[in-house]
Amino acid sequence: MNIEQLKKEVIEYSKQIGIDKIGFTTADMFEELKQRLVTQQELGYQSGFEESDIEKRVNPIKLLPKASSIISIALAYPSKMKNAPRSTKEDRRGIFCRASWGKDYHDVLRDRLTKLEAFIKEKLPEAQMKSMVDTGELSDRAVAERAGIGWSGKNCSIITPEFGSYVYLGEMITNIPFPPDQPIENQCGSCTKCLDICPTGALVQGGQLDSTKCIAFLTQTKGFLPEQYRTKIGNRIYGCDTCQTICPINKGKDFHFHEEMEPDPEIAKPKLKPLLTISNREFKEKFGHISGSWRGKKPLQRNAILALAHYKDKTALEDLVQVMHKDPRPVIRGTAAWAIGKIGDITMEPELRKALEKEQDDEVKQEIEKGLSFLAEKAGI
Score class of each variant (00 low, 15 high):
113 L>G: 00
298 K>H: 14
250 N>I: 02
166 Y>H: 11
172 M>P: 15
128 Q>G: 03
341 G>D: 02
345 D>I: 06
151 W>K: 02
256 H>R: 03
335 T>G: 02
281 R>A: 12
168 Y>K: 02
274 P>A: 13
251 K>L: 14
165 S>W: 09
29 M>L: 14
321 V>W: 06
141 R>M: 03
360 Q>P: 08
204 V>F: 06
95 I>Y: 08
1 M>A: 11
60 P>S: 07
368 I>S: 00
123 K>P: 01
10 V>D: 04
262 E>F: 10
232 K>I: 12
192 T>L: 07
149 I>D: 01
115 K>G: 11
325 H>R: 08
244 Q>R: 00
278 I>Q: 13
49 F>R: 14
180 P>S: 10
40 Q>Y: 13
293 S>M: 04
305 I>T: 04
154 K>I: 14
207 G>V: 05
131 S>I: 04
70 I>F: 00
322 Q>H: 15
114 T>L: 14
248 P>W: 11
165 S>C: 13
203 L>T: 09
113 L>H: 02
66 K>E: 15
1 M>K: 11
193 K>W: 08
4 E>I: 15
126 E>M: 14
220 Q>K: 05
214 C>E: 11
114 T>S: 11
41 Q>T: 13
340 I>G: 05
249 I>V: 06
121 K>R: 15
70 I>V: 10
144 A>D: 12
218 L>T: 12
38 V>A: 08
371 G>V: 04
195 L>I: 14
112 R>V: 12
174 T>A: 01
176 I>F: 09
344 G>C: 03
213 K>V: 07
172 M>I: 15
336 A>E: 02
311 Y>P: 09
344 G>F: 00
344 G>D: 01
40 Q>K: 09
24 F>Q: 06
31 E>Y: 13
101 W>F: 10
227 E>A: 08
115 K>Y: 08
